[in-house]
Nucleic acid binder design. Structure first.
Length: 334
RNA sequence: CUAAGUGUUGUUUUA
């Protein structure tokens, strides 16, 4: 069973739900842990209904779901339509007296956040007896996503008042608050608070800072943050390229992009869509077009998100002809 | 001599 469970988990992480199911079905033993692994695999791949169904099956077979079961099921219920199921599970959890577990509580909170149920999020947070750093981090992100930037910063301060120590995730999320030229000073001030600490050497934190400075229009600070990274990862390079593009340094962005592209296909798409949107102003038409040539060259105009970004860019640049041209060349539209 | 499997938050993303 142990081996089967590990494999189910592995398949889940690779997106092979079918294979996971096969293993699950053909297993001779079915204990809670195997169920948990299967439920986790399902929720990771967006199979909400199956995940909930397995929870019920597990109970019908006389087994008792544990904390991990609920966390995975809650994870699966992260979507506007799944909130009904999520609430049922919530009630169930409350009746079992395990709502005080911090991991379960955090899963509850983020479930509601993904459902867009901000009121419930706040409720969970307020009635949560075992809030930890993860809880606060999640809350900061929720506030950011609902554009409550001041509240996000307030939360960051409050968590320290409550005696919790911010971690690198806290800072990485926090810096996303500062995303405009007007916010540069505030951003710098916040950055100053980690200067000299280990956070100012952490890739994740520094990546976030590159992004922040790029959005605030300070390419010098962005480069400086990049230079502090001992081992830049794909995200670091990506953030730097995008920072150049946002600061009106299209050529440098392009050059960097060309030297990097192909290293990580998924990130390449992110880079392109972001650069194109940054180029979506008339003055940048030339650079946008130049970039377009590179894309056509590598046959990436087929990708939907890149295509959409191209259409958007040409539209914004007032070149409807080109926008239409791209649109017609795309294989699929959404 | 010893063992094994499952879970929540995070940095780059266009509309």
């Amino acid at each position: 069973v142990a081996v089967v469970t590990a494999l189910v988990s592995l398949y889940g992480k690779c997106g092979s739900v079918e294979e996971a199911w096969t293993l699950f079905d053909t297993s001779t033993t079915h204990d809670v842990i195997l169920y948990n692994a299967m439920i986790a695999a399902l929720s990771e791949n967006g199979c909400t209904e199956d995940a909930v169904r397995l929870l019920h099956l597990l109970q019908m077979k006389g087994m008792v779901p544990d904390k991990m079961t609920f966390v995975s099921v809650l994870d699966a219920c992260g979507g506007h339509e799944a909130i009904v199921e999520g609430k049922k599970v919530h009630v169930f959890i409350t009746s079992l007296k395990i709502q005080s577990d911090s991991v379960v509580g955090n899963a509850l909170l983020t479930m509601y956040a993904k459902c867009g149920a901000l009121k419930e999020v706040q409720e969970v947070f307020d009635t949560f007896s075992t809030r930890d750093v993860t809880t606060w981090n999640a809350m900061v992100i929720v506030l950011e996503q609902s554009e409550e930037l001041n509240k996000a910063v307030q939360h960051f301060e409050s968590m320290q008042t409550e005696g919790l120590v911010p971690d690198k995730f806290t800072f990485a999320s926090l810096f996303s608050v500062y995303g405009s030229k007007e916010a540069l000073k505030e951003g710098i001030r916040m950055h100053a608070r980690i200067v000299g600490s280990v956070f100012n050497e952490d890739v994740v934190v520094l990546n976030s800072l590159i992004n922040m400075y790029g959005k605030c229009g300070s390419i010098a600070d962005a480069r400086n943050a990049f230079s502090k990274i001992s081992n830049p990862d794909a995200v670091s390079w990506n953030a730097l390229i995008v920072a150049f593009a946002r600061c009106g340094r299209g050529e440098e962005a392009l050059l960097l992009y060309q030297s990097r592209h192909g290293e990580n296909a998924e990130l390449d798409i992110v880079t392109l869509t972001t650069i194109l949107s940054a180029f979506a102003s008339e003055s940048a038409l030339a650079e946008g077009f130049l970039l377009h040539l590179c894309i056509v060259d590598i046959e990436w105009q087929l990708d939907i998100s890149v295509g959409n970004a191209l259409v958007y860019m040409y539209g914004k640049c007032g070149s409807l002809e080109d926008a239409r041209h791209v649109f017609e060349r795309m294989e699929t539209h959404d």
